[in-house]
């Protein structure tokens, strides 16, 4: 009896434990998926009605047109909801980023929140539309707002990533300097470091190129070159380690 009760208690606790994690992690995804699904569903419904109205032409009744107007409004409202949900996700991501200052983060989040407010205002306008012309005018505004938001987000991404890559390049340069010291030490100990020096020079050249590209706004190329430099430095670090181990082994043997 006692055993059975223990098992039940443990099973319930395990279930609650897993559930709490699932709820916490799924919360954001659920909201995102719900807005995406809601939009796609509304879009399909509107498109079906639109095609039906096209087929009927002048024979379409006022009631049918009125129903279709409501569907169109739902579709546009859901599109706005989806964009708002997307912006909220971007805000969450920005708040986690360490490469920009808190002050800058606050400014970026504030800019994005202003866009969310603007979208909410447009949603109210869409819902208040009673005619085709009102809806068309507001949809035009929504579309323009989406274009504006994309531009803002692109600028934010460029700023964050340029800062990110810049910090990475600085770190890699520090590592390169350390490895250079190691190479010099090995050289003074009589080791052949020709290959090491070549790899180091290649890595440093790549880092200079990465910095130039990144400073010019091409952070994608900057990142690619930084990654290549990192690979070279990983190789060099491994080789230096092996050379030092070999030297140590040799010394031990001679002693």
């Amino acid at each position: 009896m006692g055993n059975k009760l223990t098992k039940i208690v443990l099973a319930v606790l395990a279930f609650l434990f897993v559930l709490s994690f699932s709820v916490a992690t799924a919360k954001t995804d659920t909201t995102t998926n719900a807005t995406a699904t809601g939009y796609e569903k509304a879009k399909k419904e509107w498109q079906t009605l639109r095609d039906s109205l096209k087929t009927k032409g002048k024979q379409a009744t006022t009631e049918e047109k009125s129903q279709a107007l409501e569907k169109a409004k739902t579709m546009v409202s859901n599109a706005i909801d989806r964009a708002i949900s997307h912006l909220k996700r971007i805000i969450q991501r920005i708040q986690k980023i360490k490469v920009i200052t808190e002050e800058r983060k606050t400014k970026l989040v504030s800019d994005l929140n202003a866009q969310i407010t603007a979208l909410e205002t447009l949603k109210t306008k869409v819902q208040a539309a009673t005619t085709k012309d009102e809806l068309k005018a507001t949809v035009g505004d929504v579309k323009n707002k989406f274009v504006e938001i994309r531009g803002i987000v692109k600028k934010i991404v460029a700023e964050i990533l340029a800062s990110h890559i810049d910090k990475t390049i600085t770190k890699l340069n520090t590592i390169a300097t350390k490895l250079e010291t190691e190479v010099v030490t090995l050289k003074t100990q009589g080791q052949d470091v020709t290959d090491f020096e070549t790899t180091l020079t290649e890595a440093k050249t790549l880092l200079t190129q990465a910095k130039t590209k990144n400073d010019a706004g091409d952070w994608k190329e900057g990142r690619r070159l930084a990654e290549q430099a990192r690979t070279k430095l990983v190789k060099l670090a491994g080789e230096i380690k092996a050379a030092k181990a070999k030297l140590k082994g040799g010394t031990s043997e001679s002693e």
């Binding site: 995406a36 939009y39 879009k43 546009v76 599109a79 989806r82 964009a83 997307h86 971007i90 991501r93 068309k136 005018a137 949809v139 035009g140 929504v142 579309k143 989406f146 274009v147 938001i149 994309r150 987000v153 692109k154 934010i156 991404v157 964050i160």
Partner: peptide, 15 residues
């Protein structure tokens, strides 16, 4: 921070 989702909706919203 990809915005292709918004870009796709932009195309859907032809007045």
């Amino acid at each position: 921070l990809d915005t292709s989702e918004i870009e796709a909706m932009e195309k859907d919203l032809d007045p």
